[in-house]
Every structure is written in structure tokens, then in C-alpha cells.
């Protein structure tokens, strides 16, 4: 089973817009909240009220500074499993607990089979697998597999918890394998890219790059002709009043 399916019917995944993400952590906690009671429940927390609080989370948001000086910027960067097409995290798994679903390409860990050998986490270049110290098994983004087909939820809510919560709309969910899907179009339009293609894992999730700025470094704004009062001397106000008067009596 840890052999990868030849193809998957769909390539479900996330498209994350780095141009919009403000780093609010909503996707992080909503993911935790849904999933700690969901498919791979629980997502344990160690020392939750003590000196070293840490636990399993399926999604984390980093902040980076990119570039320097006038062209520098701050980029918030959410990171979760990319549901790669050819991920070694699955093939290294000795138990078959890790697998990629042929139906939709979702990469899952079966929490009832995992022995917690952690090898899959070594094999993931993206740091997307998190071991649950307390539960003794590996956890990872499930793409909210227990939401997206869940008939107990309204149809519009059958999307991952993180996408549902994201206040800025920086997260999109859909079939990236279908060129006609909204997400695929977005990726095409905005130059969506893969993380570390050199690893050869073929991530399904895509990132939309921050857009060009429109500040002094890139502005195309052309000033209107220099205004009359700019270099005016003492009677700047007088000439201004005359203008105002004239304008009003049009």
C-alpha cells in the first residue's frame, strides 16, 4: 500500500496566496481544533501549562523577511503537507500506515496502523509530518478528509477547516489536477509554484507568490503637471483663495 498509486483520479490540494496572508494563525488553530477531534484525533499537547508547551499541529505559519532595504518585505508563510504526487514519506513507511489515496491523492496516515517509527517524517522535505509524542503515532494534514466529503456538513462547508476559517481568503481548496478548476485557473493566472521542485516529490499544493509592489520602487504613477502653488512665495494663500473662489463660481 505504501507503493504509490500510478495516478489519482483527482489531485486535491491547497493553493496558498502569499500576497494576502497576514499571518493571523486562524488556519493554524482552526486546523488544530477540527483535527484534534477528527480523523487523527487527538493532536496532543505536551506540558500545555508549563515551561515547554509543544504539541502536534498540522499547519504552521512562519514569518520571513525577504530582500533588503527599500525592496524588502515581510512574507507570512503557512506550511502544511503538500500532498505530493511522488512523496518518499509514503514509500518509506514500513507498515503501510502512510498511503496516498487513489481517489483524490490525499496523503494520509492510518493512526491505527502507524508504529511511530518516524521514518516518514525524515523523508518529508517540508517538515510537514508531526509526531504525536503522547499518542505514539505520526500526524499530518489530512486535507480534512473527514470534512470534504462529510454529508453532515452543508455542501459549502465541505472544505478544509483552515480554508473555511481564513479571514483574508488566502487559502483555496480544489482539484489541482483539473485544469478547469478554479484553483488551477488561479495557479495559472498568478504563477503558482511548487516548493522545492528539486526534491522531485511533485507537491500538489501550490503557492501564489507575493505580487509586485506599487510603491516608490515600482510605481508607475505619473505626476500631474507641477501645481501652481508649489513654489509660491508669500502670497501663496492669496492665489489659492482666488483659485478656490473661481472654482466655486463656475
Amino acid at each position: 500500500m505504501t507503493s504509490l498509486p500510478q495516478t489519482t483520479k483527482k489531485k486535491l490540494g491547497l493553493v496558498i496566496d502569499l500576497d494576502i496572508c497576514v499571518g493571523c494563525q486562524a488556519c493554524v488553530t482552526s486546523c488544530k481544533e477540527w483535527n484534534t477531534g477528527g480523523y487523527s484525533a487527538p493532536l496532543s499537547d505536551i506540558d500545555p501549562y508549563g515551561a515547554d508547551p509543544h504539541g502536534s499541529w498540522l499547519n504552521r505559519v512562519h514569518g520571513y523577511e525577504v530582500g533588503e532595504g527599500a525592496t524588502g518585505r515581510t512574507v507570512h508563510f503557512p506550511r502544511s503537507c503538500l500532498h505530493c504526487e511522488t512523496p518518499a514519506c509514503v514509500t518509506v513507511c514500513p507498515t503501510g500506515a502512510s498511503y496516498k489515496r487513489a481517489e483524490d491523492g490525499i496523503v494520509l496516515v492510518n493512526p491505527d496502523m502507524c508504529i511511530g517509527c518516524k521514518l516518514c517524517s525524515w523523508a518529508c522535505p517540508y517538515g510537514a509530518r508531526e509526531y504525536d509524542e503522547n499518542h505514539g503515532v505520526m500526524k499530518k494534514c489530512t486535507l480534512c478528509v473527514d470534512r470534504i466529503y462529510n454529508t453532515h456538513l452543508a455542501a459549502e462547508d465541505r472544505i478544509p477547516a483552515c480554508v473555511r476559517a481564513c479571514p483574508t481568503g488566502a487559502r483555496h481548496f480544489g482539484d489541482i489536477g483539473d485544469p478547469g478548476s478554479a484553483v488551477s485557473k488561479l495557479v495559472a493566472e498568478r504563477g503558482g509554484y511548487d516548493l522545492m521542485p528539486e526534491m522531485g516529490y511533485k507537491p500538489v499544493n501550490k503557492y501564489l507568490p507575493p505580487r509586485d509592489r506599487r510603491d516608490s520602487t515600482t510605481s508607475t504613477f505619473q505626476p500631474a503637471v507641477e501645481a501652481p502653488d508649489h513654489n509660491g512665495g508669500g502670497d501663496r494663500a492669496t492665489s489659492f483663495f482666488a483659485w478656490a473662489d473661481k472654482m466655486l463660481s463656475r
Binding site: L18, G23, V28, D52, P53, H54, G55, S56, W57, R60, V61, H62, G63, Y64, E65, V66, G67, E68, T71, G72, R73, T74, V75, F77, R79, K118, S121, W122, G127, R129, E130, Y131, E133, Y193, D194, L195, M196, E198, Y207, P209, P210
Partner: peptide
């Protein structure tokens, strides 16, 4: 490379996602 943001310049980590080390940091 990791972030794919190289075209915008040098990438420096400003804000880690969590205060304490997580599993991935402890392990890797």
C-alpha cells in the same frame, strides 16, 4: 529554495511558528 521566494531577495526567518521547539525541530 525552500520558500520559493528567492526571486525577491535573501530570505531570513523572522517569526517562528511556535515559541518552543516542535517535533520537527527537535528531531531534524
Amino acid at each position: 529554495n525552500a520558500t520559493g521566494l528567492g526571486h525577491l531577495g535573501k530570505v531570513r526567518h523572522l517569526e517562528p511558528p511556535h515559541a518552543q521547539a516542535n517535533y520537527v525541530m527537535r528531531e531534524m
